[in-house]
Design a protein around this nucleic acid. Structure first.
Length: 427
RNA sequence: GGAGAGGUGGCUGAGUGGUCGAAAGCGCGGGUUUGCUAAACCCGUGACCUCGUAAGGGGUCCGCAGGUUCGAAUCCUGUCCUCUCCGCCA
């Protein structure tokens, strides 16, 4: 959420930003309601003040008659206060509904555009896109040849979008986690595993919508819990309602969690194989910072992602996400898109966002500076270190050899325990 | 799942109908003293909303939501959470 006062004082800026983001919001109505809120608040305060005054005077009443008269007066004042409060509540409800739909501001350098077609390539990774002298297979074909995954069994057990990983794919999953965590550990991140479920108010605080027809979220029937779509959710929730001392910032976490997504409405495109699945494992970076630290932290997180994928020998490009494609909470976002030879195109493998104080305000995550009065909102940032399913695609497809085997990237060999993945028993 | 106990300010923890935004201690900030450090002593110290240039005023908040009452941290109902014991279990 944006600061209410800020919205009122910068109405034109907020409106323009909503247009750039392709979000329809009635900012004028918000301002009207905000003014109503203030005047109703003043009215309510006044009734309460007079009622409190009367209550205090009752103890000092001279006789029963006066006491009863004052009680009656108090009753009436409380009734007026209750009426003002009811009005207040309906104003607050409408206000909150609009407030929630106003997206974060956008970084001035973020490309302006309606959707991902307007995303701007900033630079490419160290590994060049290879020119292959053979027809590359996609990861599904490779997986079949090398006996690495079973989509049919996944569908049998849990439906389309679920899968079993087998053999070296399992070793690769574990290796990728080790690789990412060990690297980030060396960069000062605190490793952490998270709950795979979270309360719905934590989901909402991080900007996810747990219910409704377009929800990406699986919810647990009969409870207030949902399966998390990313470790960003529990990691954001880590600080919900907390106030930290400024001198402990920035806090950098690398969280491992499972991610569950319904992918509602996403069928038909890129649903083959591991690209768009209902469950995957992810190593996620998350940072809480001071406001003046967040821009540098975003660059840092992006740099971590680049180094991880450079280290795997995977070609990628970095795109600066266009305003219309930022989603609600992000102020600026970079995606890494890895080259996927099987598709013959780039596909998103990581994403890092600076959410400034937008999530923190909803989560009520604050910091305090010693010697200063009051508290302020933290800035939150998140970034994918490795999303296993998509990283697997990139590793398998980019390191495939003409003989159908897959070379294990040097960086993963210590954990995979071999240099090459070859077809099982002569088939 | 069964039985209890409890949720109060940055922390510990008093407070069972009005004078309680809330004792006390710790912590924190400022000051006195001081060769330095420490100690001692004194003063101050919650958040949010709102009016005001300011000084300052008003309102709300004792897990959350309702209820009783002129008046609720305190009584009632619901709910969430935490802890202890038992059972079950990786």
């Amino acid at each position: 959420m944006l600061d209410r006062k800020f919205i009122v004082e910068n109405a034109e800026l907020v409106k323009e930003n909503c247009r750039n983001r392709g979000v329809k919001v009635d900012v004028d109505r918000f301002i009207e309601l905000e003014n109503q809120r203030k005047s109703t608040q003043t009215e309510l305060d006044e009734w309460n003040r007079r009622a409190n005054e009367v209550s205090k005077s009752i103890g000092k009443a001279k006789d029963t008659a006066e006491r009863e008269a004052r009680k009656e007066e108090g009753r009436q004042l409380r009734e007026k206060a209750a009426a003002a409060e009811a009005e207040m509540n309906s104003i607050l409800d409408e206000l909150a509904a609009i407030h929630k739909s106003i997206p974060n501001l956008s970084h001035p350098d973020a490309p302006i555009g309606a959707d991902d077609k307007a995303n701007l390539e900033r630079f490419r990774g160290k590994t060049p896109v290879p020119t292959l002298d053979f027809q590359p297979l996609d990861h599904v074909q490779l997986g079949e040849k090398l006996d690495l995954m079973d989509f049919e069994a996944g569908a049998r057990v849990a439906g389309h979008g679920f899968y079993f990983l087998k053999n070296e794919a399992v070793l690769l999953e574990l290796a990728l986690q080790q690789y990412a965590v060990q690297f980030l550990l060396g960069q000062g991140f605190v490793p952490i595993t998270t709950p795979d479920l979270a309360r719905n108010d934590v989901l909402e605080g991080t900007g996810y919508i747990p219910r409704g027809p377009e929800t990406q979220i699986y919810s647990i029937e009969g409870t207030d819990l949902s399966l998390v779509a990313t470790a960003e959710i529990p990691l954001g929730g880590l600080m919900a309602g907390q106030t930290v001392e400024a001198d402990v910032l920035p806090l950098k976490y690398c969280g491992i969690s499972h991610c569950f997504r319904t992918e509602a409405g996403a069928h038909g495109r890129a649903t083959r194989g591991l690209y768009r699945v209902h469950q995957f494992t992810k190593v996620e970076m998350f940072a809480f910072t001071l406001p003046e630290q967040s821009e540098a932290m975003l660059d840092h997180l992006r740099d971590m992602e680049c180094r991880l994928f450079d280290g795997l020998g995977i070609p990628y490009r970095v795109v600066d996400t266009a305003t219309g494609d930022l989603g609600g909470p992000a102020y600026r976002k970079y995606d890494l898109e890895a080259w996927m030879p099987g598709r013959g195109e780039y596909g998103e493998v990581t994403s890092t966002s600076n959410c400034t104080d937008y999530q923190a305000r909803r989560l009520n995550a604050r910091y305090r500076v010693k010697g200063e009065k009051g508290t302020r909102f933290l800035h939150t940032l998140n970034g994918t270190a490795i999303a296993i399913s998509r990283a697997l695609i990139a590793v398998l497809e980019n390191h495939q050899q003409s003989d159908g085997s897959v070379a294990v990237p040097d960086a993963l060999r210590p954990w995979v325990g071999k240099e090459k993945i070859e077809p099982k028993s002569a088939a």
